[in-house]
Design a protein around this nucleic acid. Structure first.
Lengths: 344, 344
DNA sequence: ATTTAGCACTCGAATACAAAGAGTGCTAAC
DNA sequence: GTTAGCACTCTTTGTATTCGAGTGCTAAAT
């Protein structure tokens, strides 16, 4: 097992490397105030740490660099619990201060602020509206051939879709149908909407709408089809700041990934609650090889509804970012829970 | 003035450079079949062309590279009018084949296909809905404090916004108000909505809605506030393919710009009709120094409603891209005009 | 009067080499 | 167990050298 001194040295090495991005050598380490033993001693310890897989060398006679295992140990056991500056806290609180703007704007804002605060890339998975209930359905004819179907939820979210009307349908028919739909579907959670429609109203729709599949399709999307909230990414180009990404090819990998929504969903799909750290290849995605990801989900009540995440180099300021992400996710949970509970 | 042979040489040099990205020298040029004179002759002509500002050298004894003025002359006078492959034409036609998907999807699709076809970055400014008319207004109460206001246009576009209700307003009041609003505002173009609301319904709203400013604000956004359509960018990372963008700093400049919506709007804001080419510093934007932009607007009837654009290196395949952009913009105009004219 | 062959010259890119510097591992002394 | 000392390794930096592609200019050829 690791001695106290080895832990100490490991911690200092990683801290140093996170700051400098330079392999750290025994000589320079020994110069630090905190360290009271000689370079030779450090070299011995470093050799041991390397043998155990916590450190690596970039070439035979270079300084040491943390390995993935090293980072893992660092975040699991060595992290000094960071604290936030007053300015950071107020920045975060400000995100949801203005409720007028609507949820989407606020969430987008969260992404922007998070990336500015950290200088890394932020990803925010907006709240999914599964749990929200139908407040009102509406079908508004546009012309003789087409109409817009609209769902409004009790959280004020609006989904809409154009579809084609069957030949010769009367406006009064549509009105009747909308009334029936509202009668039967108001209060139904989006998650169940799909099923409920098929069970209770398919017959009705088939009678009145020629291509009722289009409408069903929309409802399906509003519920099952997009069970996931919108994705916001802030500070996409922040990766350019990292010296280990001076290489165009490396940047390209990450950039390409960020353009693919699907990949990003997969990447930050919520797994467990609380703050999660995934280092390098711990992420499934190939392009993340040299990156780390810190995620946290936020909830409405007890139900997780979205995720916030920070994507940075493996050499990320774990302590600070973890604190930040944790803080923001709790803040979001608090605000959203209150917001949600005033409705219904 | 330029002799025929100088034009010929200029054209071949630019064509060659566009293909190879390498400075082109007299010796290699002379090897080409089309060329029947010696390297020395070419050198003389090149020296003249350089003196006139059409060519540049990267260093004293390098081959020649087109200057901005050279490109300008090239696109203005030397372009061989390209033709499209059958596959390209079908790809473009396929974009709007499926009207079911809705306009936004189709426009987004246009951006994707355009970038795939060209290997450059595409920018599509979605149709602005100024000219579209109010089909239906709706206010749907969510709870005692808030409601959603919805505008549906005769093109099937839906705008919505949450706002706060004044204390103690009755549902019946709201219903009455919506009826009046629909009475007065149905058929009004979005562009005039703002004015009309203030003129004809402000008094009414003030009486019934405590913070009617929020509603006005939404209507303002639906009309004046976002006089511009949505912006779609395809193939953001295609710039990485260009050898002259091997440099991280250069890529970063362009990427940063692409993240700023405002900058992109400014960049492709429609000026004149027809295909426009802006080369390097002809674009106001600093980051475009090494890029060229080819834009074309598309219309509904005679009214331009949006823009499509291709952003690539100065060393862009002008001929092909111009043809493509021209073709697509006409196709979009045709489809949208038909689509729009079947409504109302 | 053009065109072209020939030649000296320039510059960048590639190669080689040496020296410097940072770092390691190991041994022997403390 | 710690550390001083030293040989060794590997990267970085700088310098010199060569090679090749290209130019500009002059003089000969057409």
């Amino acid at each position: 097992m690791l001695t106290d001194r080895q832990l100490f040295i490991l911690q200092i090495i990683i801290d140093d490397f996170i700051r400098s991005a330079q392999p750290v050598g025994s000589r320079n380490l020994a110069k630090k105030e905190e360290i009271s033993f000689s370079p030779a001693t450090i070299r011995n310890e470093m050799a041991d740490l390397e043998e155990m897989g916590f450190l690596e060398k970039t070439h035979t006679s270079s300084g040491r660099v943390p390995s993935e295992k090293g980072y893992r140990y660092y975040v699991d056991h060595l992290l000094s619990p960071g604290s936030l500056r007053r300015s950071e806290r107020t920045a975060i609180h400000s995100i949801f201060a203005d409720r007028q703007e609507g949820l989407e704007k606020a969430v987008q804002n969260a992404a922007t602020i998070l990336s500015e605060l950290t200088n890394y890339t932020s990803i925010v998975l907006g709240p999914k509206f599964n749990d929200h209930r139908v407040k009102r359905l509406q079908i508004i004819p546009i012309d003789t051939q087409s109409a817009v179907a609209i769902i409004v939820t009790d959280t004020g979210h609006v989904e809409n879709r154009i579809f084609t009307l069957p030949e010769g349908i009367e406006p009064s028919d549509i009105e009747k149908m909308v009334n029936i739909l509202n009668d039967r579907l108001t209060g139904v959670p989006l998650a169940e909407l799909h099923r409920k429609i098929y069970k209770e109203t398919a017959e009705l729709m088939r009678r009145h709408l020629h291509n009722y599949e289009a409408v069903l399709h929309m409802f399906a999307e509003a519920s099952g089809g997009s069970p996931i909230g919108k994705l916001f990414i802030g500070g996409k180009t922040n990766i350019f700041n990292q010296p280990e990404f001076r290489d165009v090819e490396k940047v390209r990998l990450v950039m390409d990934m960020m353009e693919k929504e699907q990949d990003m969903y997969e990447l930050i799909r919520p797994t467990e609650t609380g703050v999660q750290v995934r280092i390098g290849t711990e992420n499934a995605e190939q392009a993340m090889e040299d990156c780390s990801l810190i995620t946290a989900s936020y909830s409405v009540g007890d139900e997780p509804v979205g995720t916030i995440a920070i994507l940075g180099p493996k050499r990320m300021e774990y302590s600070r970012v973890i604190t930040l992400v944790d803080f923001l996710s709790h803040d979001m949970t608090k605000v959203l829970t209150r917001l949600y509970n005033t409705r219904t």
